[in-house]
Design a protein around this nucleic acid. Structure first.
Lengths: 146, 146
DNA sequence: CAAATAATCTTATGCGCGTAATGAATGATG
DNA sequence: CATCATTCATTACGCGCATAAGATTATTTG
């Protein structure tokens, strides 16, 4: 692969990351949320209560990050953390009623965000896009599958 | 647009951002660089010396971020900051020899990163991909063009 | 079963990037 | 020319995310 293509591709990914994140932050601010927290709330809303190790895996970020995120979301009242009765190391994280309500609001905002993002793209690209992005992120995943 | 598609798309963008960034960090660590700094060095290498306001624009991040990044890259010896003779508010940022050398190394690493990222994607997708990502990032840019 | 290994979470620390507020130099306007 | 608005950079602070190091509980295994 040539240098120019690689540079353009990596730069485009970087810029998309920054701007998508910035726009997400704008949309989430009225809910009193910081960007990143929405992923945790949506995950819990999709799957029900999880322990932090599972959240870490699902969100693609490290355990210490999850510790801090859950602590802040607990302070703001959107989640509850209770000790796991079957494993004294683990803590179970669950949505509160407030958390469920805000998860619904996030879903609405995310339609807005996604529509903005793919505006002007051809329809056949829309079909392929999530799969392509998913392929790219698994391609670039440095973690060994063991 | 339906909720599931929007959720999948935003989640895929988020994951790609995290993992691409994480892999970039792995590759840059041996050079003593932190992720984000490479963008500044590459920009200077492409265009020659710039003042910080121009870097802020080109990198898509805010002036205070540029202040901190340039300060650290100056400490590590990759750039020089000199007052702009024609505008006493501005400071000109330029690559040192060390900075030019490391920029070349980054270009090589970025071929590796790009090749990993698009592995398994069809060739016709490779042609379109940078343009698509660019369209998406300009779509989602909240800043008013004024 | 005892001992080593692994899993789960936490604390400490650092960087990237953001917003808000400030100071200084420039440019525009009455 | 004096004033006011804009531009450039900075400091202070906060969050997301990372790694490194540690404590505690589970699990494997000799």
């Amino acid at each position: 692969m040539n240098l120019e293509y690689a540079d353009a591709l990596n730069q485009a990914i970087r810029l998309l990351s920054l701007r998508h994140r910035a726009r997400a932050a704008q949309l989430l601010a009225p809910l009193g949320l910081h960007v990143g927290q929405e992923a945790l709330l949506l995950e819990l809303d999709r799957t029900g209560p999880r322990i932090q190790a599972q959240l870490s895996e699902a969100l693609g970020c490290e355990p210490p990050s999850v510790t801090l995120m859950t602590r802040k979301l607990e302070t703001s009242g959107h989640i509850e953390r209770t000790p796991d009765p079957t494993d004294k190391r683990a803590t179970v994280v669950a949505l509160t009623d407030s958390g469920k309500a805000v998860a619904e609001q996030i879903r609405q905002l995310w339609v807005t965000l996604a529509e903005e993002t793919v505006r002007d793209l051809p329809a056949e690209m829309l079909e392929q896009l999530p799969g392509i992005l998913h392929t790219m992120s698994t391609n670039v995943n440095g973690k060994p599958p063991a």
